[in-house]
Design a protein around this nucleic acid. Sequence first.
DNA 1: GCCGTTTTCGGCCCGACTGTTTTCAGTCG
Length: 568
Amino acid sequence: MRNMKNRELARMFSTIADAIELKGGDRFRVIAYRRAATTLENLTEDIETVAEQGRLQELRGVGKAIASKIEEYLKTGRIRKYDEELETIPEGLLDLLAIPDLGPKTLALAYKSLDIKNLEDLKRAVADGSLAELSRMGEKKVNNIKKGIEIFEKSRERIPISEALEISENLIEYLRANPEVEQATAAGSLRRMKETVGDIDILATGTDGRKIIEYFTSCPNTERVIASGKTKGSILVRTNGEMRQVDLRILSRECFGSALQYFTGSKEHNVKLRRIAREKGLKISEYGVFRGRKRIAGRTEEEVYRTVGLPFIPPELREDQGEIEAGFREELPTLLEYSDIKGDLHVHSNHSDGTSTILEIAEFAESLDYRYVAICDHSKSAKFAGGLSEERLRKQMQEIDRMNMGRELRILKGIEVDILKDGSLDFPDELLAELDVVVAAIHIGFRQNVTERIIAALENPNVDIIAHPSGRLISRREGYEVDLNAVIKSAEKSGKVLELNAYPDRLDLDDQNLRRAKEAGVKISIGTDAHAKSEMGWMRFGVGIARRGWLEKSDVINTSNEFLLNQS
DNA sequence: GCCGTTTTCGGCCCGACTGTTTTCAGTCG
């Protein structure tokens, strides 16, 4: 996997930070380790290259001590500090920090006074009431932790699409490098681009199944081999500290299409498809389409669909949400393609809490063949995120004007302006009016009149886009208390745009609400909310979710060559 | 542990929110 060592080092530094925090150590050292971890995660070069060229200390958050730890890791594969910090902490304890509402202080106390070492201990202490006995623990707090445990467990069993794609793409690339392999493709909910997936399934055809499986199970990322035969192999790989299972199935060429169709699902889609086939005297299985005993199709998915009189249905639509009916009526949408995207309308620079300079962002946008990119840093109320004062924003605008001279890419002057608790915006109208793009967002008061506040923002003529309209964080946080139907209606009325935030934790609006917005005639802007230039690559997750929401090129504003907003 | 237009020591993002308390600790972003 590319940048594997960057990732592993980031994980180790982040774990060291957790360990120090849990022990009540210096909180600034905690911050320092976390910052180094973030830098490594976002680093596009291999850390080995940086080390070889003696540039480690040029990295943000990497000083003498951390640089020497990186070198130690590259040389020996270990970091003594990491081993030392973990020595005194039971395995699995730090994982519990991922439970919402359970932080280092509470966990340390639970460990010290109740000997809670893992999830099971914690659940027991919740159930038998011993957790409630701790100081500063009340009914509500225990209840929140209980809910937190549920979210935590759910998030562990499902893999975020961003991570699943990375694992599968790396493995598919690895498989294709083997001449025995003819074709290799991901299937399952991953291919349907669901926001989280249960497991990773890869299908392949080739000359010698056993050899391919052996090659697969011996890939460099394998942590453990679970199964290895001549048609199926299963391995565990480690990413971000989690073990993920990947299955590979070897199929015969003749039934690759029907198997891909079968293993892509969804189950509901397949059930309906098979029922329709049966009505036509056909039988569809993973081995092909059969009339009696005669196989009439199976080599490609197109063939399979054609036998029942359907056009090819894109995987993202296969949820039995009307796509089969639309297929028969020949009314399937022409879905948005990644190549339709001409710009990113939500990127943070190092003027607020991003890590890249505007120039770096612009050059990255150029490398993506974009026509424009909008710099939308935080506004002044977002102090935790280095929100810009009016003065700093004006300076930024001047800087952008200068950078736009003689440049084909257009850098758009934007802002992610906070919607305050009273529904007003964080900056005066005169200032907002001077910007190219005004993205308004809720960051405080998630339960206070959110619907009214968003609608008030939509009614401000200077606002163009509402960012992450539901506010949910996948597997981590419910959204705002907001009536999205009312928001969609208001956006329709004012001709405003709702965002599909492509940040992997957000994917907000989600597929269902995107479809509602489309049906209401509301346009969508896909923005990555990137906080580092490389995160602009998240656009493809946004495109995937947009396709699940039945969006076409014309539904998405950042597909037009020139940047145009309907300024009312 | 990092970092420097206040610079090699002494800061480091800071306020909202919640639930616990009776003036504040812990968590989150």
